[in-house]
Write a protein that binds this DNA or RNA. Structure first.
Lengths: 235, 235
DNA sequence: ACCTGAACACCGTTCAAGT
DNA sequence: ACCTGAACACCGTTCAAGT
């Protein structure tokens, strides 16, 4: 915290003027990630960011005309990081393992980087480059399924489906974590009258209610893959 | 717009004092939904809501101590509406059709009511009643699968998985619609160099890029159900 | 018990002005 | 070309005061 001086006092920092090239768009983006990671993306404000960078708020507006423009730039960075973290297909594995590894990697990344997750899930890709990269990845993945006998169209829709499932898990887990800070652990269990719920009563015990585990995630992935395999056998 | 008078002029409305019981929490919630539906949940502010209700902003704070409290109340309403819109299982249908109908109904609801969607997806259930209702629904659904031969634990995880898939589709479609207002139709196609992408080039034509169709949604549902059936056969 | 205006801290953004 | 402070409209919230 570079300027944790006086908040309430009327004395203003009276900052020294910075040199001309002393802040760049890259520095601002990096600073924005630092602020967001230290608190959250929601709490990232232009004012706080400016303080963090020890710059006048308005200086940021020379590099980014709107806050939204800064967020877009951050999203590009996040999308690239996600792209780089997805393992490429290997020749020595089947399409099933490829899908499993890719989806697991995406989920892991979103779990360990909430800011990235919030950025990426908020919007589709902005730039041409990001879209191009995404399409190239998709082409390779779809080709792998097509090579295994799936019609091209089916391969595309299948990849799409397993990504939607992963997305659902990711957003749900994100929602849980967001509110867990408030709700505090699984004391929900006591709120419920279990008398009419014999099945659930026997299943949901100590573990946090409706939480998502690695096994639960794996289950859905396996079932989708099994469903794809069934389609392959029919042809 | 009850008070679309002067914004810039220094003359303030000078409102007449309202009677004591003239606004209730229910009226405020209803008004909040009206404002949100007319614009969006993001644009719902206490000030705008107060204007809409022709009430002083601070009056709302007597009924709801925080904006978050109002949002919670709205979420409860939304969750109840979602609950009521999900068709109950029928005796003359199998578990497959039940799941299909339920997931389709949820997706349809979220498509036609964006405000509900934003509220419900933002947070898990708050109140005891909502949680209780959700658990009762879940019990019935899980019981149907269990009756078909699934172990109880598997039935629960399966229902969870298909809900996660549906959630992924819903959030993705929501994201698309949010940005479609900006991006404007599928002119993305021209941005991309298709030379290295023979498969995708042949598949993605006129239709909006990466859009989600009813058939795509159906595909994932079918594959999951097929995956569940495979599990049943193994036992 | 319920409604109200004044007031505050914060936030995104514009603009005219510095160097 | 790049950095800055003053200023504005808006937003959530508190508080003391009305009836």
């Amino acid at each position: 915290m570079p300027n944790a001086v006086s908040r309430s006092a009327a004395t203003k920092p009276a900052r020294k003027r910075r040199e001309r090239g002393s802040i760049s768009t890259d520095l601002i983006i990096a600073g924005a990630f630092e602020v967001a990671r230290a608190s959250s993306l929601d709490e990232l404000s232009m004012t706080v960011l400016a303080d963090h960078l020890d710059v006048a708020v308005t200086s940021i507006y020379w590099h980014f005309r709107k806050k939204d423009e800064l967020l877009r730039a951050m999203t590009e960075v996040a999308i690239r990081k996600q792209h780089d973290s997805i393992p490429p297909p290997r020749d020595d594995e089947g399409w099933q393992d490829m899908l499993r590894r890719q989806m697991t990697a995406i989920r892991a990344l979103h779990r360990e980087d909430e800011v990235l997750s919030d950025l990426v899930l908020r919007t589709p890709a902005y730039s041409r480059e990001a879209t191009q990269r995404a399409m190239e990845d998709l082409e390779v993945t779809v080709a792998k399924l097509a090579g295994a006998g799936f019609p091209a169209r089916t391969a595309l829709v299948a990849v799409n489906a397993i990504m939607m499932y992963t997305r659902g898990i990711i957003t749900y887990e994100r929602t849980l974590r967001r509110s867990d800070a408030v709700i505090l652990g699984g004391r929900q269990r006591q709120m419920i009258d279990w008398s009419g719920l014999p099945l659930l009563d026997s299943l949901i015990d100590r573990q946090p209610l409706a939480g998502t585990s690695d096994q639960d995630f794996e289950f859905g992935i396996s079932r989708l893959i099994a469903g794809f395999e069934a389609l392959l056998r029919e042809a």
